[in-house]
Design a binder for these strands. Structure first.
Length: 613
RNA sequence: GGAGCGGUAGUUAAGACGGUUAUAACGCCGGCCUGUCACGCCGGAGGCCGAGGGUUCAAGUCCCUUCCGCUCCGCCA
């Protein structure tokens, strides 16, 4: 069909667009205007033909009338979804009772006097509208069509506005945007690197940056004083709804700065962004919470403080309990759900399944009834233990309490995540509230079972807390870091630290991480050397731009705020990347594959005929 | 590396215990229609039930393998 219609296609010629499709109102009554856009809907009444013309700004109803403009009406019946049009016409008020209150332009319509078909379109594989519920694989394979939808357009515009706001704020504060290399050096710490083979240095590889961390520190040594960059970062790890292999950071570093300097700057930045983009005034300064407290009260290092359901440590209360699991566990915690006594067995079973994800064996619970504690475990608890638990959790009739006992990591993960899960199910999270929180005083190290050594919690350039220098080697588990995370509604949106600016301290850090002096030298010698050339004290942080946009837009997936994202298997359904390369390319790089890639089934679209006509 | 959910016309979905021609809505095509706005009415086309193998007289349905998408655990300094 669209093929027959191609004979109607004409050039733009001298036509100039005068307005967008989202702005005409009664104020434009009588004006001769020119719109360009895509056919959203066509309503052909045989006589009158209505076309809703769409561009990124909105929709405008265009009327092809056999009475008012017979010439324009003549061929208008060929118009189909997503055809590209230029319309010249006259703005007029809609007749009495025909106003569409759902459209910004609903008071008026444009009577087409002349039009040009700029292009036809095959029938799109899914409707270009927000209520469209096409599967995500289809959307990703036809991403440019998906991006025509108003919601996706809005997300990308929001992203742009945030980036602009960030640039304005930081520019005003004398920050300089500096670009750092994309082809850089692989470092063994941290996430898996994406590697790029070097043709000129056969057998050697660049790595794509996991973050510009070292470069921004070197810029501080260079006297740049205040740096930022909105920068792509790469990590070759498994994907999630909020994780992509390439993502964007707002990366910031400041010289002669301590925690107060950096956090104050970051709060101001958020306030500016929220004001510019959302029109919201957020309260400054943000509350702060030491990491220990976050773990104790919320079980996670990024607490959502929009609701209660806090965890309570009852380990000591049940130390000698007849319930052996409680008596012997290194950590026992309870979480009270006020008024949750009416939960069904089925619901509780579902929560039990939920916590098993985090390694829990089960989920103990007690319902506080008027005359008794209804629970599989109540019979094991002494009166004294009941009293202690009731006081610790401030129990009232009608409550339910969930318990978890075991290794601290598991207990906190299970209850901490159950807490958020429950809050969603119970709909107790206030909509439209933005709760910021700084989490501070992170551990400097955490033990890695796989590598049988301590690894940096944040990264190995993070300064130890004042007075914790010796702990780095004597008692690494107790050492705290000068690190801070910015948390928004239970998501980590930013994180940073005061860095080590002494070569000597940096050497001790690598030593604490189990590096030999030779390893430290070969991998990070250039950094240590730089720190010995008059490095100023410095620190900074980085925001995850994608996650921030996700929160601001209310999107449920990071993919909805990235123009061309990857699937969970890190492929691009539109370009079919990654893909095998020619033998010649491999030869030039000095590479040989251990296994030949199997022929991947193609997904069927660009290049294939749509079968619908 | 692991757990779970899904894959049926172009799209979104329904298809009890295996059983006749595999449904519906939207979309598409044709016809009618001068005030619709997710227009309406009438008619029509459209399917290797993700792919491969098996069980069976008989498989969309049961079994095995595999591919793809999504969610999560591990992982993500």
């Amino acid at each position: 069909m669209q093929q027959e219609h191609q004979k109607y296609i004409t050039d733009l010629g001298q036509w100039q667009r005068s307005h967008s499709c989202g702005e005409l109102t009664l104020a434009n009554d009588g004006q001769e205007i020119c719109l360009m856009g895509w056919v959203q809907y066509r309503r052909d009444h045989g006589g009158l033909i209505f076309v809703d013309l769409r561009d990124r700004m909105g929709l405008t109803q265009v009327v092809f009338s056999p009475d008012a403009a017979p010439k324009a009406h003549e061929n208008a019946h060929i118009l189909r979804s997503e055809y590209v049009l230029a319309i010249k016409g006259k703005v007029r008020p809609r007749p009495e009772g025909m106003i569409n209150p759902n459209m910004i332009t609903g008071q008026i319509e444009v009577v087409a006097t002349e039009w040009k078909l700029l292009n036809t379109s095959k029938t799109p594989p899914f409707a270009i509208e927000d209520r469209c519920d096409a599967g995500e694989n289809l959307r990703l394979a036809w991403r440019y069509l998906d991006l025509r939808r108003p919601r996706m357009q809005a997300n990308l515009r929001l992203r742009h506005k945030v980036a602009q706001s960030v640039r304005h704020y930081l520019d005003n504060a004398d920050f300089v945007e500096v670009e750092t290399p994309i082809l850089t050096k692989s470092t063994p710490e941290g996430a898996r690197d994406f590697l790029v083979p070097s043709r000129l240095n056969s057998g050697e590889f660049y790595a794509l940056p996991q973050s510009p961390q070292i470069f921004k520190q070197l810029l501080m040594v260079a006297g740049m004083d205040r740096y930022f960059q909105i920068v792509r970062c790469f990590r070759d790890e498994d994907l999630r709804a909020d994780r992509q292999p390439e993502f964007t950071q707002v990366d910031i570093e400041m010289s002669f700065a301590d925690e107060e300097t950096v956090m104050g700057m970051a709060e101001g930045l958020m306030a500016r962004v929220f004001k510019d983009v959302m029109g919201i005034d957020i309260a400054l300064p943000f509350p702060r919470m030491p990491w220990d407290e976050a773990m104790a009260r919320y079980g996670v290092d990024k607490p959502d403080t929009r609701f209660g359901l806090e965890l309570v440590n009852i380990t000591e209360i049940v130390r000698g309990s007849g319930f052996k699991l409680f008596a012997t566990a290194p950590l026992v915690k309870g979480m009270k759900v006020p008024g949750g006594e009416g939960m069904t067995r089925k619901e509780i079973d579902a929560f039990t399944e939920f916590v098993k994800i985090y390694g829990a064996q089960g989920l103990a619970w007690i319902k506080i009834k008027a005359d008794e504690w209804q629970s599989p475990i109540a019979k094991f608890l002494s009166d004294e233990e009941r009293k202690g638990i009731a006081e610790a959790l401030d129990l009232k009739v009608g409550d339910i309490v969930f318990f978890q006992a075991g290794e601290p990591g598991m207990v906190n993960a299970a209850l901490g995540n159950l807490r958020v899960h429950l809050a969603h199910q119970l709909h107790i999270i206030p909509e439209d509230s933005f709760n910021f929180l700084w989490v501070t005083d992170f551990p400097l190290f955490e033990y890695n079972d796989e590598e049988k050594r301590y690894v940096a919690c944040h990264h190995p350039f993070t300064a130890p807390a004042t007075g914790h220098m010796d702990l780095m080697t004597t008692d690494p588990a107790r050492a705290r870091a000068r690190a801070y995370d910015m948390v928004l509604n239970g998501s980590e949106v930013g994180g940073g630290s005061i860095r080590i600016h002494s070569g000597e301290v940096q050497r001790r850090m690598f030593e604490a991480l189990g590096f030999t002096p030779e390893q430290a030298e070969s991998q990070f010698g250039f950094l240590i050397q730089a720190l010995e050339q008059g490095a100023p004290p410095h620190g900074g942080l980085a925001f995850g731009l994608d996650r921030l946009i996700m929160l601001l837009s209310g999107a449920s997936s990071i993919r909805d705020v990235i123009a061309f994202p990857k699937t969970q298997k890190a492929t691009c359904l539109m370009t079919d990347a990654p893909s095998p390369v020619a033998a010649k390319q491999l030869r030039e790089l000095g590479l040989r594959l251990r296994e030949q890639p199997g022929d991947k089934p193609k997904t069927g679209k660009p290049g294939e005929e749509a079968k619908t006509e």
